[in-house]
Design a protein around this nucleic acid. Structure first.
Lengths: 240, 240
DNA sequence: TTTGTGATGTGATTTTCATCACACTTCCTT
DNA sequence: AAGGAAGTGTGATGAAAATCACATCACAAA
């Protein structure tokens, strides 16, 4: 019932949790490992989209840049997350950029290999379908949150998602164990740094959040949930 | 190369085109048919999400209502489209409403039956995965278009998507063969009716679009594409 | 210690968009 | 033919958010 009980320890949360041990190890068998340094790009818009990526360790952001130089952060993936495009086009290309933001170890899966595996293993195919469905719903609910409740709603939704992804409970407070700049938050919600700064200031003054050595601490989650009409989706879905 | 060559005849475009004849008929075998009248709802937010729907004939809108009574139209599905939620939760519920907007004939697929089918038929599983990937990308690109380019960009993107979904070429012009009210367009882009009305007025005055007995006619597609930094995605992806 | 760099905080101003109010049109219906 | 409902068009006004312009702060590197 309460939000705090629902939250898993932060170390466990990853979207590859959708898979059983066996399925995950089948996937791991067809991966080849690569390392990528912070600052590099895994792929750019327009690159061929024929691979999946399993983030064994590190962080990758999926972004989109506009002509005017603005950047929009669509997803932030962390250790244990699986991501990438699968679609029915022969010469499919990426619509987004994948920016490596921490030194990472990545398992790469070729779409062709994945297809063979799914073709062979019905149980994996079913799990895979559910994983895809979950990722799609995550996108849809984020879309809704960022479109429907103004910039304050978008920010509150994002803070909640950050709690679900990086949150550690300290009594009734939740520490977002990940340093974030105002600019990063702005790019996640399609706002400016200045707007985010002012909104965070408002939330601090109203004692909804606080800063503890540069980490955001959420003191009043129900308030955040109220602003973006949060419906208490499963935490695995309500993520960054 | 040109946009007009890329567009298929409107009668052919449906997201179930992802499937081969055989796969589609396998899916059809596990459907049961139902009829739904315009104005009814296929499902509401909070209803159990354990079915897929194949729209044999008619139209269904996926919407979200805010507390203040505003409505946001996430998708509009038409004859030949397949839709619904698949996810890994045991008691999964819908986050959106499905509103039947034309009298429809719908094939309903139980998730359990689908799972068995995917488990048995590897080729179907692979096609299904690609269909899911396509739908997800459609959501992502729409998300980007509605977030990054202001309300005019959102409108232009939506007009392009409407061309790809309902467009008929008349020489260099494209007739959107579907009547749309300003309010509907507003709900598709998260704007007000008045804003849409003014923006459409601007586009008419600039000779970008025109009205022909209440249908929108696009006279200058490149202009629309420029406003929302359109990248000429596959038409199957760039839809409403 | 100084200097440079990236980040934060904040006022003033402008732009974008929503809201409110109302006239007008179209078309359906009884 | 009259009335009503739904839709369109448009001005005036206000609120939300972006933009611009600096001041300040934190911290790492020289």
């Amino acid at each position: 019932m309460t939000d705090t009980l629902q939250r898993k320890p932060v170390s466990q949360v990853a979207n590859s949790d959708c898979f059983t041990e066996e399925s995950l190890s089948k996937l791991k068998e067809i991966m080849y490992e690569m390392r990528a340094e912070a600052g590099n790009h895994l792929f750019w818009e327009g690159d061929a989209a024929d691979k999946l990526y399993f983030l064994k360790r590190g962080q990758v952001k999926i972004t989109k840049a506009s002509d005017e130089g603005k950047s929009f952060i669509l997803y932030v993936y962390n250790t244990g997350d699986l991501f990438g495009q699968v679609d029915p086009f022969q010469n499919s290309v990426h619509s987004f950029n994948a920016e490596v933001t921490e030194n990472s170890i990545i398992g790469v899966i070729q779409q062709k290999d994945l297809e063979v595996l799914l073709w062979q293993h019905g149980d994996l195919a079913v799990e895979f379908m559910k994983w895809m469905g979950l990722m799609h719903r995550m996108t849809q609910t984020k879309f809704r949150d960022l479109m429907m409740f103004g910039k304050p709603g978008a920010l509150c939704s994002t803070l909640i998602r950050l709690c679900n992804t990086y949150g550690k409970n300290h009594g009734s407070e939740i520490v977002i164990t990940k340093k974030l700049t105002n600019s990063e938050l702005a790019d996640m919600i399609g706002a400016t740094r200045e707007s985010v700064n002012r909104m965070l200031g408002d939330l601090k003054r109203a004692n909804i959040i606080a800063m503890e050595n540069n980490y955001i601490v959420v003191k009043d989650l129900p308030y955040l949930r109220d602003i973006c009409q949060c419906e208490n989706c499963p935490v695995d879905m309500c993520r960054i």
